[in-house]
Computed example of a mutant assay.
Amino acid sequence: MSKEARSGATRTLISPVRLNQPAGRRTYRIVLVLTLVMATIVFIGPLYWMATGGFKSPQELVRTPPTLFPESPGTHAFTEAWDRLGMAQLLLNTVVYAGGALLLQLVFCVAAAYSLSKLRPVFGNVILGMMLASMMIPAAALVIPQYLTVLDLPLVHWNLMNTPWVIWLPTVANAFNIFLLKRFFDSIPDELLDAASIDGAGPVRVLWSVVLPLSRPILGVVSIFGLVAVWKDFLWPLITVPAHETLNVGVNTAATSMPQNTLIAGLFLASLPTIVLFLVFQRNIMAGLTAGSLKG
């Protein structure tokens, strides 16, 4: 047994001695492959069923046992879902809501995280603790207070119903994103900021020229979280923007008057942008999740 294995520095489910044997390596690889295949089926299965369901007829879709592949694939359900649901307008509404929320989140969450991490205001730890404590409150418990607030915005007394601001404002203060950004900003050496300050850069210039270029991975992660949160939200858009529905609300509203295969096709079209977004930026997402230190 190697010195590392005896010391217990590396612990695995299978001992290094067993892995060094042909039978042990073969068993390990078989178990690993089976685990990965099962996990892939569990996660990809519902997406595959939704994607192929739009190509089936209503009779084939409800057949028992279900068919794995469409017998007579057709795109009629997708075109019907696009036309009957008004997917173009629903998609535009959702993009406006998600894009505006993302922009405001980046501005305010970055400013808050930078202040807590590098400017270190008085009672900064208390403020951060209160932010994190707010994450323990269920989202459903905040619906009524938020609704009453947007009906009559304090001080200015504006009614924000059926405006993009009713979606944008509640998403600005995101404690989780602020926490992620602060942890990353903490890992940036203060020497870099001090050097920029000696050259005459103020706090805003340091943030723009030094901190943000180094923070691209975590900014990508926060952007994905912000977009997906608005994109998948259902309850809040349902009660606040009934005149300008999002994709989720529009598909749900028309669910009772559409064939099942058309509904599934609409659901797939509604989820397709976020799937594509993840596939395109998955490397950036994983890099941002594992980023936490800088090499000297």
Score class of each variant (00 low, 15 high):
4 E>C: 05
14 I>C: 08
15 S>P: 05
16 P>C: 13
21 Q>K: 08
25 R>M: 14
27 T>P: 00
27 T>N: 05
30 I>L: 14
30 I>T: 11
30 I>F: 09
33 V>H: 04
34 L>T: 09
36 L>P: 00
39 A>Y: 05
45 G>D: 00
47 L>G: 02
55 F>I: 01
57 S>V: 01
59 Q>I: 06
68 L>H: 02
69 F>L: 15
72 S>Q: 07
73 P>F: 05
77 A>I: 02
78 F>H: 03
95 V>N: 05
96 V>F: 13
99 G>V: 12
105 Q>K: 13
107 V>K: 09
108 F>M: 11
109 C>S: 14
111 A>H: 08
114 Y>A: 09
115 S>E: 13
116 L>F: 14
118 K>G: 10
118 K>V: 11
126 V>K: 10
128 L>S: 13
129 G>D: 11
142 L>C: 11
145 P>F: 12
152 D>E: 14
156 V>S: 10
156 V>Q: 08
156 V>W: 13
158 W>R: 11
158 W>P: 05
164 P>V: 06
181 L>T: 00
182 K>C: 02
189 P>R: 01
191 E>P: 00
192 L>K: 01
194 D>P: 00
195 A>N: 09
196 A>L: 01
202 G>L: 03
203 P>V: 00
204 V>F: 14
206 V>P: 00
208 W>Y: 11
208 W>I: 12
209 S>G: 01
210 V>Y: 01
216 R>F: 05
216 R>E: 04
218 I>E: 01
219 L>I: 08
225 F>L: 15
226 G>A: 15
229 A>N: 12
232 K>P: 00
233 D>N: 12
234 F>V: 08
236 W>F: 09
239 I>H: 04
241 V>W: 01
243 A>I: 04
246 T>Q: 07
248 N>G: 14
248 N>H: 06
249 V>C: 05
252 N>Q: 11
253 T>A: 10
257 S>D: 09
258 M>V: 15
267 L>M: 14
267 L>Y: 10
272 L>T: 15
274 T>C: 14
277 L>D: 09
278 F>E: 08
280 V>G: 09
284 N>D: 12
285 I>W: 10
286 M>V: 15
291 A>N: 10
291 A>R: 13
292 G>P: 14
